[in-house]
Amino acid sequence: MLIRTENVTKIYELGAVEVRALRGVTFGIEEGEYVAIMGPSGSGKSTLMHILGCLDTPSTGRYFLNGTEVSELHGRALARVRNQEIGFVFQNFNLMPRVDLVANVALPLVYHGGINRADRRKQAVSALDSVGLGHRLKHRPNELSGGERQRASIARALVTEPSILLADEPTGNLDQKTGREIMALLDELSAAGKTVILVTHDSNVAAHARRTVEIEDGAIAREGRA
């Protein structure tokens, strides 16, 4: 099992009010699976994604990733897990506007440690090639279309060869045609053996996955297989 959560909760304290974003989530994902985590906004799916992506830690419960109990990690160790195990694809791409695509895609390698600048660029170029952006290396994000930006963000997610590709509403900022192209790219990656987790409220997007996990009110409401 690549991912396993045991009764994970997340409680935010907003002044005197306690907000229970997650009320005990237990589930697992096998290596190579293609899973969609679904739910309306406010359901807690974003919180779950942040925990799965090691951007946040559970209030209680345990989270195992690739055999490591990451719910016990903090600071540097958690940053290393993010760097080496997880590739994020964001709805709004989150590319750095001031630098070109190669530098954007090479960014995770900067924090990987022990890779020199030339090798970082080489790996970034090959990741950009693999998503069909080999002709856009020197362009800055604002010189690209939305689809191209999302491809670049996927290239950045892939460049460290992480265990998981974690895509948060990957088509949310794209038109339908471009959205389909991006989903086709994610399908390809899944077919090639990558573990892909989609976080979405869009059932058309979720339909690409082979398993869906629906979150409602901070807990798993339904699970289904395609």
Partner: peptide, 16 residues
């Protein structure tokens, strides 16, 4: 802020 967030999301330690 967003640049810092991106850097941290892709694995930058606080120290970096």
């Amino acid at each position: 802020l967003r640049e810092i967030g991106i850097r941290k999301a892709v694995g930058a330690e606080d120290r970096a």
